[in-house]
Each structure stands twice: as C-alpha cells, then as structure tokens.
Simulated scan of single mutants.
Amino acid sequence: LPWLYVFAASRPEPHILSVLSNPSSADVVHHIRLEDTANSHDDVGRYLEETLPKIPSYGDYLEKHPDALERLISRAAGVFIFARITVNFLDEHHSHPEEWFELLLSGGSPAAMPLNALYLQILRSAFPPEDLRALPSEHKRLRSLLRFVALETESITSETIAFYERDLSASDISDMVDRLRSVLMIDQDGDVVPPHASFGEFLVDKHRCSDALYHVDKAEGHAHLACACLAAMSFENYIYRLRKPDLPPQLAHVNFGIMVTCWRRHVRQAAYTVELEEQLSQFVQDVRLALQIWHHGGLWSSFSRYSVQNVWDYLQVGG
C-alpha cells in the first residue's frame, strides 16, 4: 500500500532497533532521533529556563551565573527526562546551589549519555561510596531495593519489598526511597516506581552504570529474587493471598502474587547459586510444590475440591 505510512515512537532500545535496522527493510524504514531534530534543544532549554529560577535559592544563583544554566542546557543534549530529573534533584537541595550545579555538570561529556552520568551522580549523592564501603549492611539494604526496582515487573510497595527482603522494614524502604526521590517515588497506589523506565535499565547495564556499588547484576539478581519467592511460600502466605480483604494491617499492602506467579520467571533468568539450588531442591520435596499444583488446580471448577482454600479449611481445628 504505497499510501500507508506508520509512525512509531520509542526510546532507542537495542532489541527494537535491531529489528527495525534489518537490511531487508532499509528502504521502507526511516529513523529520526529526537535529539537530532531542530527544536529538541530549544524545548528542553525553555523548560529549564522557566523552571529552575523558581526553585528557592537558584533564581539568585542563576542571575549571577547565567553561564551555569547554559552549560546545563548543553549537557541535557535535548533529552527531556534529563531535564526533569535535574529539576527534581535541585528542588531537593536548596542550600549551596553552586555545589549542586557543579555536581550535575561533572562526570562525563554531554555526548556520552548525560542521563547515565546524572543517575550515577544522584546515587552517589544519596548513598556516598565511602559510606557503602564502610557499612556493608547499608550497601546490602540499598542493593535489595535497587534489585526489586530493576528486576521485579509486578507492583511493589514498601511493605512488599520488606516482606520478601526479611532484613528490611517498610520504614527502611521508605527512607531509602526518600533519599532517592529524584529517581524514585511512591505513587498514589503506594507502589515504589521510578519516574522513567530508563532508571531500571541503567541499573542493570554495567556499561551505563559504571560503578559496581550501584550496578544490579541481572542473573544474580533474579537468583536472589527467586530464592526470596521460594522462601516466602507457605500455606499461611497462600491463604493470606486468598483472604486479602481480611489481612492483618501489617500485611494489607503486601503483593503475595509475586510469590505465586513470579518465582518461575526469576528462576528462568537466574544464575546458578548454591542457595537457589538448595531452595529448589527443598521446593520439590515439601509442601510448596503441592501448593503450586493446588493453586493452578484451584483455577478450574473441576478441581475445586482440591483448592488451597479447601485444603486449608480442612486442616483447621474443627474443619
């Protein structure tokens, strides 16, 4: 159909570009990068020029140092999410604006993915490398949070992360999210989410997240999450999932579905670890395998007599 044109907008994901760049479609597929368009820099520049002076203490600073704003606009390279996260970050740090501006302008050239440098600067500012090295327990807590943010596709509340990461409390999670509120937030449903998907992608790409203190290894991370799911499986937790309206207050916001449906995906993408081998070995020998069978059987009316709920009721005193 020579009159049919399809316009598709996407971030430059390698797996998408690899398909669209196939030589067989080179004569019909044309690529335009947003940052190469005539007015992308102007749009981002206007946003920063209108927004930053309204942040307390930055109006006076920029009036005295107009070159700082020009350098920041140049560093943004037409990428709006860079500008948005920059505004979020500066809005959290009102004192000593010159120090925060220099922090954002340091670390890498504008041509080398400024968003990567920005994410890394924000992580280092919230959780300084020297602190993480001095306090391994603090580093472990941070990695637990970043692992969930980067690898778990289901909704995750602070309570959910704390449920699966037994060394963390919901208040620990909330505190860390608050320290990273430029790149993480708790939405209206209580879920911990990044304002842009590129943050999770940054965390799992060792070439983009060049500091190992903050990098999330995908295979090891999936192994850890698989173990967390398997460890959480129990008759009691299955029933909590079925009786959600009647849950104790401390469990009301826990996503038990991760335990039931996501463990297989994490196992498939996991690296081998001794802990995962032990968890899987125990899994096929104890009640958790039966729970999985009953869970899926309970979805069909012909197996209703063997649903988890019925088995649980039968085992209760007087059942």
Rank of each mutant, 00 (worst) to 15 (best):
L104Q: 04
D131V: 01
I122M: 04
P97G: 06
Y119T: 02
S144A: 13
I156V: 06
C229G: 11
V216Q: 01
Q316H: 07
A77C: 11
I258V: 10
I81V: 15
F235P: 00
Q285L: 10
L105F: 02
S95P: 00
T51C: 02
E220T: 13
G298H: 11
R141V: 02
L20C: 09
F82K: 04
R147K: 12
V284M: 13
E236Y: 11
I55W: 07
W100M: 07
D286S: 07
E220M: 05
Y240A: 10
D286L: 09
R243D: 09
S301L: 13
D60V: 06
V149L: 09
F303N: 05
N310Y: 01
A226M: 11
P129S: 14
S158N: 12
V308P: 01
F256I: 08
E154A: 13
G190T: 15
R166H: 06
T51M: 12
V216S: 05
L135K: 10
S210P: 05
D246C: 05
E236R: 13
L123H: 04
R288V: 04
A170S: 15
L184S: 15
S234N: 00
A270L: 06
E277K: 09
L225G: 02
M185S: 09
D42I: 15
D313W: 00
L135T: 12
L145N: 01
F199V: 12
V284T: 12
L52R: 10
E63H: 14
E275Q: 13
L1M: 13
A228D: 03
A197L: 14
L145P: 10
S21R: 09
P129N: 12
M185T: 14
R179E: 04
P245Y: 04
R141I: 06
P97L: 02
Y58G: 00
L34N: 05
V192P: 11
E50Q: 09
L34C: 07
E275L: 07
S182I: 08
A68H: 10
L118R: 03
L289K: 12
V287N: 14
V267T: 11
D187H: 06
I122T: 02
R143H: 14
Y214F: 15
S158K: 04
S158W: 00
S302D: 05
T157F: 00
S18C: 11
L17G: 00
C227Q: 03
D286M: 08
L276N: 09
Y240K: 08
R84L: 01
H96R: 14
R265H: 13
Q316E: 04
